[in-house]
Amino acid sequence: MNIYGIRAIYHFEMARTFRTLWESIAAPVLTTSLYFIVFGKAIGSRMGEIDSVSYGAFIIPGLVMLNLLNESISNASFGIYMPRWAGTIYELLSAPVSWIEVLIGYVGAAATKSVMLGILILGTARIFVPYEIAHPWWMVAFLLLTAVTFSLFGFIIGLWADNFQKLQVVPMLVVTPLTFLGGAFYSINMLPPLWQKITLFNPVVYLISGFRWSFYGIADVNVAMSIGMTFGFLTLCLIFVWWVFKTGYKIRN
């Protein structure tokens, strides 16, 4: 293991994060606060409880997931896309680091940043809505697993994209809709029967459901299923990255 190499990449990425700390924190915290004011207070006061949880509290796990997914993907994709774009990737490619070490450095830093943000949003939510966490360890586990999985997914996007538009297109056109339709703001049981079935093809449903379960003990889908699906997606991403480094796809040709 090239421990010094992993550390160098991780520090480099974290330094980049801290250089733009305010930009990266301010926007998500502000939008989340707006969600709580609009959905939690204004609209939420007219909504009934869902499974005996107030609407304001119900949307917290979904909002945290929404931010976690977006942040993980954008951090990691930007992290690896930048050196490709600026040409500084030559150094990474000529260094004695394996693909696993590169991943630990980049994905580790991206996940660290999004977990920090997730916690910050949970703290912000506390200002607006009182809530309890039924299974705190599971909550942390879901937070970490999701951050790592989607940072890995972001890393892949950063390898695939060959311009800034492509870098933005997946988070905007795929992830945001999937999150909104993944039960961030409603329980799947509120959908018509056909849509209840269709929505099960949306991987984000499993994340939000599992995460919400760790808070309130209520879930749209089986918790084991949630964990299984997340690990399944993680494995897929790992296989893809392994293949990229093995064949040199887009980076060594």
């Binding site: 090239n2 010094y4 190499g5 550390r7 160098a8 990449i9 520090h11 480099f12 330094a15 980049r16 250089r19 600026a86 500084t88 150094e91 990474l92 260094a95 004695p96 680091v97």
Partner: peptide, 18 residues
């Protein structure tokens, strides 16, 4: 790396190479 300092970037290189 435009935004890095000279010192940070040489330190990075040394670490990256193990």
């Amino acid at each position: 790396d435009s935004f890095e300092s000279v010192w940070a970037t040489v330190k990075f290189s040394r670490g990256l190479f193990g």
